[in-house]
Design a protein around this nucleic acid. Structure first.
Lengths: 115, 115
DNA sequence: GACTTGTATTCTGATATGGGAATATAATAG
DNA sequence: CTATTATATTCCCATATCAGAATACAAGTC
């Protein structure tokens, strides 16, 4: 078996540095492909390809404005990553009940699933 | 250029599902390689290789106990992921102005063009 | 020492990557 | 319609992956 495709889930999509930077930039404002290329010092095709990946996992959405395509962030798609990492949060905050908290977190995740 | 090595940073290491599961299991207790292999229905060499990756990015640490090698989680190594994701947290916490912005975006998209 | 158990490493192969170069498509302007 | 601007796609290739199989290494037992 080979490595999972970058489009298989948000974790794989976000593994690439450039894509994380794109998301960070889009957190502030809608940007066009060339805007991103200029800011990141990447060629336009490279940016287009990264955006394609991000769109496939629903991390960004596009809006066509004339000849431009403005990409914007879909923040909620990042929630799974936050939630997963948050599961371990009590383990580094050095509290006594950290194990309990972690187990509670796992349970909540199983029951809740969404939001 | 090729895809970044899984050992290049925590984000890449954690992109793989099996490795995330290993971390989740290790959050509860120290486990041996064979313990993990049995629980995850993976062959032992596969687990050893995953653990190697996790160790290289300092997500786990090993302790030799007799013939066994007990792996344990180093939770703090997950903090960068949590912190990064938390950066976007305010964007999905349902503030009204954000919702408005999003709906405005959708409306503009309807009038402008498709995705 | 010979044997067993636990783990790590090496080799292989199918698969996917990310960037550059070139090209194609889309939308607008003249 | 032609030219221009903005973006997407295709082709290429060096690189890395993950799992399986086989093997090596390590530590304990007899």
């Amino acid at each position: 078996m080979a490595r999972s495709p970058t489009t298989s889930d948000v974790f794989n999509a976000v593994a690439e540095v450039q894509r994380r930077q794109i998301l960070t930039l889009l957190a502030d404002r809608e940007l066009s492909v060339n805007d991103l290329a200029a800011t990141l010092n990447l060629r336009q095709p490279a940016v287009s390809k990264h955006l394609r990946v991000l769109k496939e996992v629903d991390l960004v959405q596009v809006r066509g404005v004339g000849q431009q395509r403005l990409y914007s962030l879909n923040p909620q798609a990042l929630k799974p990553i936050y939630d997963w990492a948050a599961t371990f949060r009590s383990l580094w905050t050095g509290r006594l009940d950290r194990l309990d908290a972690h187990l509670a977190g796992l349970l909540a995740q199983q029951k809740g699933e969404d939001s």
